[in-house]
Simulated assay, not measured.
Amino acid sequence: MATIDGTCDERFGAVRDALAAGLDRGAETGASVAVYLDGEPVVDIWGGHADASATRPWEQDTITNTWSTTKTMTALCALILADQGLLDLHAPVADYWPEFSAAGKERVLVRHVLGHTAGLPSWTEPISVADLYDWETATAALARQAPLWEPGTMSGYHGLTQGYLVGEVIRRITGRTIGTFFREEVAAPLGADFHIGLAEEHDHRVAPVIPHESHRAAGNPPLTAEASWTAEWRRAEIPAAGGHGNARSVAQVQSVLAGGGAARGVRLLSEAGCEAVFEEQFDGEDLVLGVPMRFGMGYGLPSPTVSLPNPRSCFWGGWGGSVVVVDLDVRLTVAYVMNRMAQGTLGDERGVGIVMAAYAALGG
């Protein structure tokens, strides 16, 4: 059986076994898993290798690009500002970002952006991957364009644009970039090793993602997984897809939400502020993902497509397989972060198996 390092409460032994099984059957190259219960770690494990050639072991402090799992970090920042009364989730985006009202977007509300219903799932004018690294270029282009549908009426997954939209609202309110706000207000108080915009000093710890062999460049911009291998990608603040961390850091942050706004003595939100997550923004077939989805305020909610045991739970994941599930009913957070990408954007059996094993340990 594969060697698994770290700590695991024996009650959650099936979680450790699930990670080992993935490594044994070759589904993983390297991966990390964390489970937090009542804000405290009960599983913090890792195994495998940080590179495709299996020359570097995955270490305790190995981090990787988590793709859209980053969205949960950006959404949490918005929820914190809303809880502080600095951001009205039901107000027009243009209240905070006046230039955004152009081209008929005066009816786009902040909640539409968080729920993928704003009608801006991508840029309509051609942009390059390099444009993602220039905040002003990426946000100004979104401010100029018209929504593709009546805001709030349907969802179309805002794969990259959501982060720039939410991030610019946060910048207008706080005067800080999303990466700085997240670092100062969330990661630092919690001691979490998650980064939106990675400093050069951390480069040696990065496990490059390993693309699925079927993947080809697609979209606007035409993005490949290999783009994340560059220093330009790591330095940029790409708040919907460019966050770097591991399962431990993802769970450290999101356990705050699972705990009703606090974890390990740090309170970032009130209990009422956490409940905003469950304000349903859309329930139906997503125009981009092509499957039925239920979106709350910045997170996915339980649905027939993504079934979770408890109603007050939420989730999101990243391209290729990373995932985090946050359950406020049982105060559980489960995170899985790996470097070998699977096909698709809605996760795969590896993360699902980890989450199921964690719930089984609770008797759920």
Rank of each mutant, 00 (worst) to 15 (best):
T7N: 11
F12K: 00
F12R: 00
A14C: 01
V15I: 11
R16T: 08
D17W: 07
D17A: 15
A20S: 15
A21M: 06
G22I: 00
D24P: 10
R25Y: 04
G26Q: 13
G26C: 12
G30K: 03
V33W: 11
V33I: 13
P41A: 05
G47D: 10
G47Y: 11
A50I: 07
A54S: 12
A54W: 08
A54D: 06
W67F: 15
M73K: 00
A75E: 01
L79D: 01
L79G: 00
A82W: 13
H90P: 00
W97C: 02
P98Q: 02
E99P: 07
A102F: 09
G104M: 13
G104A: 05
G104S: 07
V108L: 08
G115T: 06
T117Y: 10
L120Q: 01
L120H: 04
P121H: 12
T124E: 12
E125W: 05
P126I: 02
P126A: 11
S128Y: 11
V129W: 09
V129N: 01
V129M: 07
V129C: 04
A130W: 06
D131M: 10
D134A: 04
E136W: 09
E136A: 14
E136T: 15
R144S: 14
R144K: 15
R144W: 11
R144E: 15
A146W: 08
P147E: 02
W149P: 12
P151C: 04
G152L: 06
T153H: 03
S155C: 09
S155V: 06
G156K: 08
Y157V: 03
T161S: 09
Q162D: 00
G163P: 03
Y164E: 02
V166P: 00
E168D: 15
R171C: 00
R172T: 00
G179N: 03
E185M: 12
P189H: 05
G191I: 09
G191D: 08
D193M: 00
H195K: 04
G197F: 06
L198S: 01
A199W: 03
R205F: 08
R205P: 09
P211E: 01
H212L: 10
H215M: 14
L223Y: 14
T224N: 09
T224G: 06
E226K: 12
T230Y: 03
A231H: 14
P239L: 00
A241M: 11
G242I: 02
G242W: 08
N246S: 05
V250I: 15
Q252C: 02
Q254M: 14
S255C: 13
S255T: 15
V256R: 04
G259W: 09
G261T: 07
G261I: 02
R267N: 11
L269M: 14
E271Y: 06
A272N: 07
A272R: 15
A272Y: 06
E275A: 15
F278P: 13
F278R: 10
F282K: 05
D286H: 12
V291S: 03
L301P: 02
P302G: 01
S303Q: 11
V306K: 08
S307P: 04
S313E: 12
C314M: 15
F315L: 13
G317H: 12
G318H: 04
S322L: 06
V324H: 01
V324A: 11
D327Q: 09
V330H: 04
L332C: 03
L332H: 05
T333F: 05
A335H: 05
A335N: 03
N339Y: 10
N339H: 10
G353R: 04
M356I: 02
M356Q: 15
A360F: 09
A361F: 12
